[in-house]
Design a protein around this nucleic acid. Sequence first.
RNA 1: GGCCCCGUGGUCUAGCGGUAAAGAUUCCGGCUUUUCAAGCCGUGAGACGCCGGUUCGAGUCCGGUCGGGGCUACCA
Length: 528
Amino acid sequence: MWIITACSRVPRAASRKAVKSSSAYFVGRHMRGLWLKIWIASEVVSWARSNTFSRPPLVETWAPISMSDDPQTDSPFRVRFAPSPTGALHIGGARTALYNWLQARHQGGELVLRIEDTDRERSTPDNVEQILDALGWLELDWEEGPLSQAARAERHREAVEQLLEGGAAYRDPAMADDVRAWKERHGKQRGYRGEPSDDETAAVRLRMPDGGDTVVDDLIRGEVRFPNANADDFVIARGDGSVLYNFAVAVDDADMGITDVIRGDDHLSNTPKQLLVMEALGVEPPRYAHLPLLHGPDGKKLSKRHGAASVQELRDAGYLPAAVRNYLALLGWGTDDDTTIMSTQELVERFDVGDVGTSSAIFDEQKLRWLNGRFMREMPLEEYTEAVARHLGREPDEALRAACAIVQDKAQTLDEVWPLISFLFAEPEYDPKAWKKVMKDSAMTLLTDARAALEGAEPFDAETIEATLAPVLAEHDVKPGKLYQPIRVAISGGTVSPGIFESLAALGKSASLQRIQRALDEGSAVST
RNA sequence: GGCCCCGUGGUCUAGCGGUAAAGAUUCCGGCUUUUCAAGCCGUGAGACGCCGGUUCGAGUCCGGUCGGGGCUACCA
């Protein structure tokens, strides 16, 4: 008899009142393989206790906020992120990493990074590097790791041996075709059961119970039960002794003292297998939380086909890590009061994996853009300049800083910044369409007067420039746009730029006058 | 095929049997006597997959059905 401790799903309404219910139940197994379940629900947490752990004011830092209220679990809170390095870290993986990180920080626990590299075909050092790079960019850190799962092969073999000796597992030479044939004979819904063999080169299978259900008490989905009769005796170790995923994961999670497994929904169906492995090993399983999967705009599983599918692509597209974290956190989770924009600290304080929703979400870049724009605008100029510099591969010098100052409230992504300020760093090319649209003959007259007026503008700052240009406007009795647009084209080459006064000031007096003169020259050249 | 998960405006969330289903984003219109954005405003547009059942009353509970997804490897 062994015990599963599990924390039942905490209803939102309850958590809102800061009352957390908890329950533990025992799952025992009859000799025949019947599962017995005794529900021992208990409202362990009284008001007194909930007061002890009530949420601190928002200013408080990342101290443990809500401690695990499961009396069975005194071990420190420990989660893990366990990606398999078979490619770049995509958005779904990034969200899983973030949720693990947030929960670890929220609980004041630890995060372990474990690389699931037992697939020797597909796992490459380069992919590991990419994952580390992505996590680094997202500014997610961890207490332990990166640990290599492949490096633990010896321990895995040992565990297989243990099960073989105890009779929980057996050697079976059957191959995939044999299993299929067996199922043809016994009915599709019957789980495969093999014949033990002495063949030392045969794969090792775990014996599944013939009756009852294996229950996963998921923090997000509640109780999910899987009929044992339906499950195959599955292979835990290959003929050569190397182990398979569902076995390695169970052994590692147990060995590493993981208390909570937060991972994608695609692992929900694997969980009963892992639970059974742990039971055979005689260890206590962790709590589980299976996150709904993320999908692309077409509703299909996220893949390279969809725009920015990897973290690297997000970075290259000019998004801010803080904005990406905020957006990802909101994909599947929300606050009770509809708050959308949150600092990372606020995320840590408010996030609770038990509040994550059950339905899959679609990655929507439009909302990310909006959110990113909000973060961009609220950044201190210093920080903004550095982010822009890093993105452009330039130095965050005075010139860039000045350019950033006039463009900060206009761009939604880092990528949009350069086109708006490049005219400050190089002589612009006139955009033919822009020229044709605004540089009419009347515009040339206005430009001539504006240039003359600007010569007297001192100091050459936005305020003075505006005041200097006002009389020109009045004199010709035209709408502001009639004057400003030609100036804009003259100094920036196009019809879109930051505010015209700020742009002139940032360019400087001599360059501004010189460019207006150039436009004038070009204008007269065209008309003659 | 078998087992499992999911289904509220285009998208993300709220809604926990009882006022005209709420917020965010998006789109549309307007304002900001400088472009493009941003911002602000709007009694603007847009949703409970479908069918039954329980109930005085269902987006909310039950059954079925359809749709999407996952697992079903000596992959992870």
